[in-house]
Design a protein around this nucleic acid. Structure first.
Length: 741
DNA sequence: CACAGGTCTCTTTTT
DNA sequence: GAGACCTGTG
């Protein structure tokens, strides 16, 4: 197998001792190197169980597992191939009791975190108008990514009211987690680090065990993960990390690009190998990627090249709006299928935001193109799935207060918010869990008659437990729950498309639990719940089915497709408005890396598209073609960028005018129409607002601009403003809070 | 306590 | 345009 490797790859495979940094450009065969390296280690008599290979996604782990199994054969199953999170879960399931948790702790997903925070804000009487849950979540997550605990955070926050509030919530949040015997995603890493630092015995055990460590996508590690790896590798330091600083796209999640840029400082004497030959893309595609990424500063110097054919030029298309864009992509795919150039599964549509998937989905449905959307709402985050999982969790151990509270009134049992908070208060008072308090419902004096409504619920859970203990299978248990609660029956009665989709999801859950029972030697309810807790949508991408895949650029990292469409290449969407308005070049650079990732997913054909107008959050936005498209060497592109002038000088296209008409927007040049439509009220409107057509105004976000038109809408005035820096925006007067200047 | 209807806000990106 | 939140009614 080694003869397939080029010199650099071979060197990386054979360099097994000491720290090694492999800078692997996109499509340079890094997975092949990693798997070959594992095979090589084993051939050289390294015990399989002393090898650890860490990835970010289950999909990547699964892929590597498969390839390792193939390359190694006997003993491969002993190699530890896993994601950061599942690695940590595995360790914590054994030793969490040494840091004050029980080993059967539950794992909270984003939804759970959110509701926990919500209840904390209520408890601390924090004004949710001024402070948003989201902010707390990201502050806490950010702190954890950097291994800052509540006490440390509080110390750095003194004197700053806002930060002190964050600190209070963080502290409360963390102690609530502990009380619930729960960890959030970040905790899985943080607590493992904590465990390894505190407990010498555990640390030494794993340091001894992990003689050889490999980390994939190293550019995306955050400080906590860096520390985790450092601890793991503490004894042998046979640490091989693979990454590409040009593909670092998770800064918002705490990824610290310095981990890879400064690897040689962290590990003096580290050997560095560059993999610069690309085996994936055509020359045109690769050159397009190179011409974009070279605009970034502070990169590790490298130039990707390929022996592959030159290939077709990159196609650039510009459309009036998002509908037309989706229409084109659908028909382009249909054409490729018809001509036999590509199969559906060869095609992928990549975009910056999940919201963009909708237009494509609608179009694909009407054109009968099979598709699959990855991401958006995770399967296991869907309401119906979370409800049923909450039942399972409650039957399993009921330690998860959130799960119990979620389902206590699903279906309706007449137990409302008031009763729940009374039970909660009682539980707090007596230092017991929520479910235990439910069991004693009769003792809770404040409940009154509501107690009688709670009893059947508790009874139901207890019966399920008994049945499970007496040998009911997991599939049967779930069936019983669905049956007894009437969950599916209610949905059937509803009969809407949405309800039917939910039933399909429930069927899917049944399939998953059944296949879990078939695949695992000793299936347990806890085991199933645990497996499910760490699954992301991308992991469910099935290779053998034939459908077009739609996903965000972030989800696409690590994947490749013969025919790729990059959609929505507009300034303000990609790069995002946030990154442009931050004025921080490093944010644009991160977006540019995302563009680089997107381009390099394509093997044979790449199509880039943009729309002049797009509805974003109910607002019609005009945008110029993304700066990233301009950065591509024009010699590599077909199609021209039809927009050399800034947006403010261009008149709306025909299609744009049509849209205006549909939305009853009138052009400035036809006051007569406005009169007839609004019976002269428009001029009254101009008088009521402090500004009129032609005035200069200021907007909080968009800065200064000129009012183009004011039209009376349903209950408000719709104002169209030409902003100096952001082009034309339409907005409601009460919402926009424009100030005349 | 449940439900319907209205209002307000808003996300890039996710393990 | 969707989802969370609030309010009023039965």
């Amino acid at each position: 197998m080694y003869e397939e490797l080029n010199d650099m790859q071979l060197e990386a495979v054979k360099h097994t001792q000491g720290p090694l940094l492999i800078l692997a450009g996109a499509g340079s065969g890094k997975t092949k190197v990693l798997t070959s390296r594992i095979a090589f280690l084993i051939e050289n008599n390294v015990a399989p169980y002393r090898i650890l290979a860490i990835t970010f996604t289950n999909k990547a782990a699964g892929e590597m597992r498969e390839r390792v199994d193939k390359a190694v054969g006997y003993g491969a199953e002993a190699i530890w191939v896993a994601t950061f999170h599942s690695t940590c879960v595995r360790i914590l399931r054994r030793y969490a009791d040494r840091i004050g948790y029980e080993n059967n702790f539950t794992i909270y997903d984003g939804d759970d975190q959110k509701s926990l925070i919500k209840s904390i804000l209520k408890k601390l009487e924090i004004d949710t108008k001024r402070f948003k849950e989201r902010t707390f979540m990201s502050v806490i997550s950010g702190a954890k990514d950097c291994l800052i605990n509540p006490t440390q955070y509080a110390m750095s926050a003194t004197g700053d009211y806002v930060k002190e509030t964050y600190a209070r919530v963080y502290r409360e949040y963390q102690s609530a987690l502990k009380k619930n015997n729960a960890m959030d995603f970040d905790d899985l890493i943080v607590q493992t680090v904590e465990l390894l630092k505190k407990d010498e015995q555990v640390r030494e055990q794993y340091q001894e065990r992990f003689e050889y460590i490999m980390v994939d996508e190293y550019q995306d590690t955050n400080t906590a993960q860096f520390e985790l790896i450092r601890l793991f590798a503490g004894k042998y330091e046979n640490l091989c990390v693979v990454g590409d600083d040009d593909q670092s796209i998770y800064k918002f999640r705490g990824a610290n690009i310095k981990n890879i840029l400064n690897f040689e400082q962290h590990y003096p004497g580290a050997h560095v190998i560059r993999l610069e030959q690309n085996y994936r893309s055509t020359q045109n595609i690769l050159n397009a990627a190179n011409s974009v990424i070279k605009n970034n500063y502070g990169r590790k110097d490298k130039t990707l090249w390929t022996d592959n054919p030159v290939g077709n030029k990159v196609v650039f298309k510009q459309f009036e709006n998002g509908d037309e864009e989706a229409y084109f992509v659908a028909h382009d795919i249909a054409r490729n299928i018809k001509e036999g150039t590509f199969s559906y599964a060869d095609c992928a549509i990549l975009y910056r935001t999940n919201a963009q998937s909708r237009l494509f989905e609608e179009r694909f449905v009407s054109e009968n193109i099979p598709y699959k959307i990855i991401g958006g709402v995770n399967f296991y985050a869907r309401k119906e799935i979370k409800d049923l999982l909450s039942y399972l969790k409650t039957v399993d151990n009921a330690r998860d207060d959130l799960a119990v509270q979620r389902i206590i009134n699903v279906p309706k049992r007449g137990i409302g918010a008031t009763s729940i908070s009374r039970v909660s208060a009682y539980a707090d008072e007596h230092g017991i869990g929520f479910y235990d308090a439910l069991k004693q419902a009769r003792e809770i004096s404040t409940l009154g008659r509501a107690a009688s409504k709670i009893e059947p619920f508790v009874q139901f859970i207890q019966v399920m437990r008994t049945k499970l203990l007496s040998g009911l299978s997991l599939t049967e248990l779930l069936e019983e729950i669905i049956d007894q609660t009437g969950y599916v029956r209610d949905l059937e009665a509803e009969g809407t498309d949405e309800a039917l989709a939910r039933i399909e999801n429930i069927d899917e859950l049944m399939n998953k639990i059944t296949s879990y029972e078939e695949e695992v030697d000793e299936p347990t309810l806890s085991g199933f719940l645990e497996e499910v807790a760490l699954i992301a949508d991308i992991d469910n991408l099935e290779e053998d089915s034939d459908y077009v895949v739609l996903m965000t650029l972030h989800s696409a990292k690590g994947l490749e497709f013969p025919n790729v469409y990059l959609a929505g290449l507009e300034d303000g969407l990609f790069p995002s408005y946030m990154s442009i308005s931050s004025g921080d070049d490093s944010e644009i650079e991160e977006e540019r890396r995302l563009m680089y990732v997107g381009i390099t997913r394509a093997m044979k054909q790449l199509t880039i598209s943009a729309a002049r107008m797009r509805m974003i959050r109910g607002e019609l936005n005009f945008a110029r073609v993304s700066r990233f498209v301009r950065e591509i060497d024009p010699a590599l592109l077909t199609g021209t960028i039809n927009e050399t002038k800034p947006i403010r000088e261009q008149s709306p296209s025909r299609a744009a005018k049509n849209t205006f008409k549909q939305n009853s927007y009138l052009t400035k040049s036809s006051p007569a129409k406005r009169e007839s439509k609004d019976f002269g009220k428009a001029s009254l409107a101009d008088g009521q607002l402090e500004y009129a057509v032609g005035d200069r105004v200021r907007h909080m976000k968009f800065g200064e601009g000129q009012v183009q038109e004011i039209v009376r809408g349903g209950r408000d005035f719709e104002v169209t403003v030409l902003f100096d820096s952001y082009g034309v925006k339409k907005m409601f007067a009460t919402f926009a809070k424009l100030k005349k200047i």
